[in-house]
Simulated scan of single mutants.
Amino acid sequence: MNTLMYISAIGALVASTAAGVPATVGEVEDRTFQSVAVTQDGQPRPLLPGTVIQLRITDGGLHARAGGNLIAGQVTVESTHLVVTGVHTMQAPYGTDQYAQDTWLAEFIGAGPAWTQHDDELLLWVDGTEIRLAGLPEADRPLLETYWLVESTSRPGSPPSPARVPAHLVFQDDEVQGALSCNWLSGRAVVADTTITADGLGTTKRMCQQEDILLEIAIFGVLQGEVAFDLDADRLDLTGPDGRSLHLRAPF
């Protein structure tokens, strides 16, 4: 079944500063970089309208996104290279064009781009393709339009349980969309000062594994009626009418 699309092991990323001295992962760790230019053979390579490439390395993991599915893997430092292993791409149905762009970015990363980092700029390149990114200032993430990863769930009186299935939510105007690794969900979600009023949440009807189903039930158990939210930097807590909650984190 289509839960995660695994990409073959990623080749090494050659690391150097603009002065030719090898950079370290610490120079780009815990920072979000966003694309300012993408070129191929010296010519602009347009992205889909309204999309940018974002990349972040945190706690030994790499996250990248080009407006659609999240690409993630584990990062280790090996001499002058970054080696990314266990790379996977979430498979939410964003449409044919977005799928093609996600696949292109995954293949670019998988080809082992060289990189340089100087001040607030990060440059990745492989063959004739270059992605130039600028560091973003750290700030509180907005509730709307942020890609929120579900990290754990909890019930009243019990500690949070890890969400072992990849899942995310994106709130947009008066709706919410998101995905488990199996089904795609959407519904109405009206945001007020400290609450979200959710109704009509539905999903696609794929045959899913038990872990997917259990997390789907947990999400539905929270996103019904008036839901309280607490937003703190890159963390979002959602608490439903009966006290059940979802704990989410923004990867960028």
Rank of each mutant, 00 (worst) to 15 (best):
L185S: 01
L144D: 01
A9L: 10
A64F: 06
A9R: 12
T51D: 00
L248W: 02
N2V: 14
A66K: 10
T85D: 15
P251L: 08
E145F: 11
Y6L: 15
T24D: 04
D199H: 12
R249C: 03
I131S: 06
T24Y: 00
H63K: 08
G202Y: 11
I7P: 03
W115D: 00
I7A: 09
G157A: 09
T24C: 02
D97K: 09
L48A: 05
I196A: 09
L48W: 02
I10P: 01
A92K: 07
G187D: 00
T195A: 13
V84A: 03
R65T: 08
G225M: 07
P156S: 06
G225W: 10
P93S: 09
G200I: 03
A19I: 06
A9C: 03
E78T: 12
V25L: 15
W148N: 02
R155L: 06
D212R: 05
L180Y: 09
Y6V: 14
D120C: 01
T89L: 15
D120S: 09
G61L: 11
P162M: 07
A92L: 02
E78K: 15
E138M: 13
E138H: 14
A192P: 01
L13S: 09
A189F: 10
Q101I: 04
A139Y: 03
A106K: 06
